[in-house]
């Protein structure tokens, strides 16, 4: 058995996208956009570490422009993707591409370190084929975020009561939690909650979660 990660017919027939590669272009754009969403704003500095196939073919496959396009908020079918490097430059986003020689956990892997003057985030994404992606690391935490399952990703400070505050909001909206993972850097430092839920179309809850004290960002992925 390989992975069993594909669940929808549209993972296979789709996505509608700008060429040339679903894993290296569409998947890369999706990773870029997920990173931007978790980060919560457009970063001013981006270091992109590319591994294995991504490291060797990123220019020919448009992986570079797609990652940057995603960081600018573009979707895989955005006709402006081809122009993303120029648009990023004009928007004041400094980008460095760093192809790495070492082996990675997956042949299409990329680690993005995004920052502004005040904050910094590290995210590792893998492109598993056909434009489908997973997030395998967040600020050094090993995670397994599979797109396609409705999921909240919450970055917060490690203070008492956070889990109770978050789950109360979800329960008030009658949202059922399937699985929940909580990890932290160290006591009192930054922590991350990944909550997979059963309900769809509930992105509006993120707004309410984002009003919580000591919560840095709450993002909902459909």
């Amino acid at each position: 058995m390989a992975n069993g990660s594909f669940k929808s017919v549209f993972d296979i027939i789709g996505p509608v996208m700008i060429g040339p590669s679903s894993s290296h272009t569409a998947g890369a754009a999706r990773i870029g956009k997920v990173v931007r969403n978790i980060f919560g704003e457009q970063p001013t500095q981006v270091d992109i570490y590319l591994y294995e196939s991504f490291a060797k073919t990123y220019r020919g496959h448009g992986t570079d422009i797609a990652l940057v396009g995603g960081l600018l908020g573009m979707n895989p079918d955005d006709e402006r993707l081809a122009d993303s490097l120029r648009l990023a430059y004009e928007a004041g986003m400094e980008v460095a591409f760093i192809p790495k020689r070492e082996k990675a956990e997956h042949p299409n892997m990329v680690r993005l370190v995004v920052s502004t003057d005040t904050k910094k985030l590290s995210v590792t994404g893998i492109s598993i084929g056909g434009g489908n992606i997973q997030i395998s690391e967040l600020n050094g935490f090993k995670i397994n975020l599979e797109m396609g399952i409705p999921t909240f990703v919450i970055v917060h400070q490690d203070v008492p009561g956070m889990i109770a505050h978050v789950t109360k909001i979800l329960s008030d909206h009658k949202i059922n939690i399937g699985t929940m993972t909580v990890t932290r850097e160290s006591q009192g430092e930054k922590a991350i909650m990944i909550i997979e839920v059963d309900q769809h179309d509930i992105g509006y809850c993120s707004d309410e979660l984002n009003t919580l004290e000591d919560l840095h960002s709450a993002t909902f992925f459909e």
Binding site: I12, S21, S22, S23
Partner: peptide
């Protein structure tokens, strides 16, 4: 050919193999 030209296509199951189906 449209895919190689960075035009709009539907992956099927991937972009590089989108022409077959």
């Amino acid at each position: 050919e449209v895919n190689a030209q960075m035009g709009l296509i539907c992956a099927n199951p991937t972009a590089g193999s989108a022409g077959v189906v």
